[in-house]
């Protein structure tokens, strides 16, 4: 006795998964430099996309920012518009984990600028407070 078969109609009425449009994260690729002349948390960053996977490499500025944060895969790209069918990248989220702190990077791309926010969370309470940063970068 074979497997029970669903009727064609029941198959037709199964909810079909619709893949979201591919977000063009590569529009953010490149080398990004800080707009401010003053020292800041992030000195510069690089974005590159390989086989539809986007990576960010951050270079630190003012202490206690590490000089080289390393290159990590971004968690997800986000579209720039809320009409839910947009395919143009508008931002990304990435996570860094250091010995003393974890950092969530939340960036958005707008009008040629990359606006990079970070939430810096220390693993042990100490003299320094957990900190929010928001800095601006232009593409070379």
């Amino acid at each position: 006795m074979g497997e029970p078969q669903q009727s064609r109609r029941s198959v037709e009425h199964l909810p079909m998964a619709v893949p979201p449009p591919r977000i063009e994260a590569e529009v953010m690729d490149g080398r990004w430099y800080k707009t401010s002349d003053k020292p800041q948390w992030i000195e510069r960053l690089e974005l590159d996309t390989v086989d539809d996977v986007t990576y960010v490499h951050i270079f630190g500025g003012a202490s206690p920012s590490p000089a080289d944060w390393g290159r990590v895969r971004i968690q997800w790209p986000y579209a720039s518009a809320s009409n839910t069918s947009s395919a143009k990248a508008g931002g990304f989220v990435a996570q860094y984990d250091f010995d003393e702190m974890s950092v969530e990077v939340q960036a958005n791309y707008n009008l040629g600028l990359l606006v990079v926010a970070t939430f810096v969370t220390f693993k042990q309470p100490g003299a320094l407070s957990d900190r929010f940063t928001r800095e601006f970068f232009f593409r070379a």
């Binding site: 909810p15 079909m16 998964a17 619709v18 893949p19 979201p20 449009p21 977000i23 997800w76 790209p77 986000y78 579209a79 720039s80 518009a81 809320s82 009409n83 839910t84 069918s85 947009s86 395919a87 508008g90 931002g91 989220v93 939340q106 958005n108 926010a117 929010f132 928001r134």
Partner: peptide
């Protein structure tokens, strides 16, 4: 974050269903 008395809220919205909607900022 608060700036000049205004709460500025950025949201990163990621859909987990199969609706085909784009994640968006």
């Amino acid at each position: 974050n608060v700036k000049a008395g205004v709460l500025v809220v950025a949201s990163f919205n990621r859909f987990k269903d199969d609706s085909g909607r784009s994640n968006y900022f």
